[in-house]
């Protein structure tokens, strides 16, 4: 999994990190955060996407080995959430790249994130 944090409030990012730590421990499902998109099978995107992020997100998607699963995390990732009316907002994730799963919540609980990704793995 590769984690792309857009213009977020950080909570979703923290909850993604929390998934790695002992209480939730996603490694038991064989998931691991990786340092570069070229090693990833899943792209986690959270936060609203601003003008500056949009270019980078597109570039990352371009570089990703296909097929890649994209997961939009949090209200921001799914719709833009509270920041959707912001002056720098460049569209929710699915207007920029195709999204395979949405995990709503502000922030979604780690359990929800894990459930979402595991469901995706079964697909």
């Amino acid at each position: 999994m590769f984690h792309f944090g857009g213009a977020s409030c950080n909570n979703c990012d923290i909850e993604i990190l929390a998934c790695l730590t002992p209480r939730f421990d996603v490694e038991r499902f064989g998931m691991q955060l990786v340092g570069t998109i070229r090693h990833a099978d899943v792209l986690l995107v959270n936060g609203s996407i601003n003008q500056k992020d949009k270019v980078r997100l597109l570039e990352l998607y371009e570089q990703a080995p296909k097929p890649i699963l994209v997961v939009a995390i949090g209200a921001c990732g799914c719709t833009g959430g509270i920041f959707a009316e912001g002056n720098t907002f460049a569209g929710p994730v699915d207007k920029i790249i195709p999204v395979d799963a949405y995990i709503p919540g502000c922030p979604p609980k780690p359990e929800a994130i894990i459930a979402g990704i595991v469901k995706l793995l079964h697909k």
């Binding site: 944090g5 977020s8 936060g47 609203s48 980078r56 509270i82 912001g86 720098t88 907002f89």
Partner: peptide
């Protein structure tokens, strides 16, 4: 920085 700018004061 700026990857994270959301324009909160304006919002």
């Amino acid at each position: 920085t700026g990857y994270n700018h959301r324009g909160i004061e304006k919002l």
